[in-house]
Simulated scan of single mutants.
Amino acid sequence: MKKLQLSFKTAAGKRRDLVLNYVKDDLDPVLVKSAMEKITASKIFEKDTVQLFSEVVSAKYVQRTEKEIFKNSLQ
């Protein structure tokens, strides 16, 4: 499954990611950046009085591939 990982910088200077499932392919970079800027402007995400998403850093698609090597049967 493809996910969209939105990366932000917190008010304390640390990196925080917001990962979204079920996203469209080929999102417009300008639209994604604009949406991320709205998230930062809303100031609704906070932990221990630190703004979690205070600066837009990046956005990328992330896809995980799994290949089973073996599986024990459950009894």
Rank of each mutant, 00 (worst) to 15 (best):
K2D: 00
K2Q: 10
K3T: 15
K3D: 02
L4K: 01
L4G: 04
L4A: 01
L4Y: 01
L6G: 06
S7E: 14
S7D: 15
K9F: 06
A11G: 14
A11L: 15
G13K: 09
R15F: 14
R15I: 08
R15Q: 14
R16F: 02
D17W: 02
D17T: 13
L18R: 10
L18I: 11
L18T: 02
N21D: 11
Y22T: 05
Y22L: 08
V23I: 13
V23K: 01
K24P: 00
D25N: 08
D25H: 00
D26L: 00
L27I: 01
D28E: 10
D28Q: 10
P29F: 08
K33I: 05
K33R: 10
K33L: 05
A35W: 03
A35I: 03
A35V: 03
A35H: 09
M36A: 01
E37K: 04
E37N: 07
E37F: 01
E37R: 05
T40E: 03
K43G: 04
K43N: 07
E46S: 13
T49Y: 15
T49F: 14
T49H: 12
T49M: 06
V50K: 05
Q51W: 14
F53G: 07
F53W: 13
V56L: 10
S58N: 05
A59S: 05
K60S: 12
Y61A: 10
Y61P: 11
V62H: 05
V62G: 12
Q63P: 02
Q63C: 09
R64I: 08
T65P: 02
T65F: 07
E66I: 13
E66W: 13
E66D: 15
K67H: 08
E68H: 09
I69H: 08
I69C: 12
F70D: 04
K71W: 03
N72H: 11
S73H: 07
S73I: 14
S73V: 10
L74T: 13
L74C: 09
Q75R: 05
